[in-house]
Design a protein around this nucleic acid. Structure first.
Lengths: 342, 342
DNA sequence: CTGAAAGCGCTTACAG
DNA sequence: CTGAAAGCGCTTACAG
């Protein structure tokens, strides 16, 4: 059996309450007693039982982290480890633990969240994604449970604390960058009508086109799904069709790399024939051929700020919802080229 | 205040013990009573308090996962998300939760582990790495706490349940593959004397050379550290020196990609001038230029088996330690070429 | 088939 | 400055 507070009390010749107080470093306990109790704790190798403590103080000192859908391969995307690194950093500083969701479907995830909050397993929750239609967010809001989201909530944003890049603005800038290089036939690849960041980026792209008086060509917009199902074929068609795009803004570096390899199969060169900008600026981006021009969205800081906000929510449940915007920055490398106006 | 078993009892007009029994679906409770209690639970939206339950049944239904050093960027390596995906799968099936370490240094990690086990936060632990000198493993062994490691324990392997590839054998095969293609000047890049899998791979490499009567050239072996500190320079020197290697076995795909990009700067072509095999077979491997020949070590299964073993350890603490070997398989692509014997 | 009681390992008013 | 008692929300012998 594990060592309890009673064992320590017996050895130190004090009551359990006193032991509890020296653990909390209560100033009303004499130094002499503290010394004796601590000695006993060391001698026995005592460590407080966490469950018992949580039960009475009603705080678990742990963050619940909800990932999107762990079943699919989305996780190979470096977003996840990097955001976790940020969250870990602040968790560690405040001696919080991390409890991770395991759900594979939206329903499983929902069930898990309910258990986390009702079962008092965690003090607050960080949602690592934002979808257009999400029961989880609604539930958390209804329960008035402390939570924070990474990404822009599609509804009720004004009542939710979240941290995000300004995806509309950033993508508008990126698209402009392409336009300034002379491109007018620009494709957008990787929308997913369920993922809000994707919708925002598409919006930014559209705004840039509009400002430049370039009319929108629906054929230039390709959905993430069609890339997954039939990526190669799709790229082949778009690139070898009539009026092929001369530039692409691509939802993430992974997809960009995939596209580059398909283009190559067609003897289409990046950046000479098509320019590509993408998002995330993964470690490998600079080692690609060509080195990728990519937007660094500062995932690490997204994680840090989300955790900080959650901490605040937990400590001051009445604090107002807030939005934190993490600056994104395009890192210019060699995947885009100038084009002569036609 | 949250709803407790007492509230349910009151509404259903039974005692708390009875409510507890219907939660456990105890067969001795009449169907009629069960119905009434369940109705009350639904009506109130009751969910059991997890801490309270854990406290009495002395089981938390959660796995503790210990990552190496979350401070560094190691996590951008897709190993981590993929192994987690495997672990999640079995956790979910058995309704276990996942509690993640956050420590940034070896000391922090050690402290966390002690807290996890002494504080009874988890029922068992999965170590995601194996180092040559690891207090954590020793501690777990001394405490006789259920745990499993991914990787070969450097000491006490016979007393520890672990899952691993056969890194020695696999690397021997891979090196042979290069030798069979006519290479004799083969470099090994990415050893780290602290990481056991790295040591094993080096050993496999050495064995293959020995069998082929190729004498070992220490200059061909480069440490992970020197790659981190001075990677480009190192590769430049090795490749443009006297007797440059014509092939390299590289510890992982990331490093391989980096090396390929340095080689390119020197106008050294992969695979024409140097052949490269690496490990992990990341998603991107097939889209590289050239497509990478890489060993698929089946990280997903490593995770699944580690979790299964841990489950077994938890359920039958007296079960004997065992070793599970996950087959690895080289995926041949285009980063290696034949060479004429000199 | 069901209830009253004790207990899991802590914390925290209350009292002195 | 310290202790005895009650209680956090459950489970589980014990008894009937």
């Amino acid at each position: 059996m594990a060592i309890t507070i009673k064992d320590v009390a017996r050895i130190a010749q004090v009551s359990p309450s006193t032991v509890s107080r020296v653990i909390a470093n209560n100033p009303r306990i004499s130094e002499e007693t503290k010394r004796r109790v601590r000695e006993a704790m060391d001698e026995l190798g005592y460590h407080p039982n966490f469950q018992a403590r949580s039960l009475v103080v009603k705080s678990t000192k742990t963050f619940g982290i909800i990932m999107p859908n762990s079943a699919t391969k989305v996780l190979e995307n470096p977003f996840f480890p990097e955001v976790l690194r940020g969250i870990s950093l602040v968790a560690r500083e405040h001696r919080f633990g991390i409890y991770l969701s395991t759900g594979a479907t939206q329903d499983e995830i929902y069930e898990e969240v309910v258990q986390m909050v009702q079962g008092r397993r965690v003090d607050g929750i960080i949602l690592l994604y934002s979808k257009t239609n999400d029961r989880v967010m609604k539930y958390l809001l209804d329960e008035d449970f402390p939570f924070t989201v990474i990404g822009r909530p599609f509804v009720n944003a004004e009542r939710i604390t979240y941290v995000d890049n300004d995806n509309i603005y950033t993508t508008k800038q990126v698209t402009k960058y392409l336009i300034d290089k002379g491109h007018r036939r620009i494709s957008f690849i990787g929308v997913n009508t369920e993922d809000v960041f994707t919708i925002d980026r598409l919006e930014g792209y559209k705004q840039a086109l509009e400002e430049a008086d370039i009319s929108l060509n629906e054929k230039y917009i390709v959905h993430e799904m069609t890339m997954k199902e039939n990526g190669k074929q799709t790229i082949l068609e778009i690139l070898s069709g009539h009026y092929p795009p001369t530039a692409m803004v691509v939802i993430d570096d992974f997809l960009a790399i995939e596209i580059i390899s398909y283009a190559e199969d067609l003897n289409i060169n990046v950046p000479d024939d098509v320019s590509i900008v993408s998002f995330n600026n993964i470690m490998l981006a600079k080692h690609m051929k060509p080195p990728l021009t990519s937007v660094d969205i500062d995932i690490f800081n997204l994680g840090i700020e989300a955790a900080n906000c959650l901490l605040e929510k937990i400590q001051e449940p009445e604090s107002l919802p807030k939005r934190i915007t993490i600056p994104a920055k395009m890192i210019e490398r060699k995947s885009c080229s100038k084009i002569d106006s036609e």
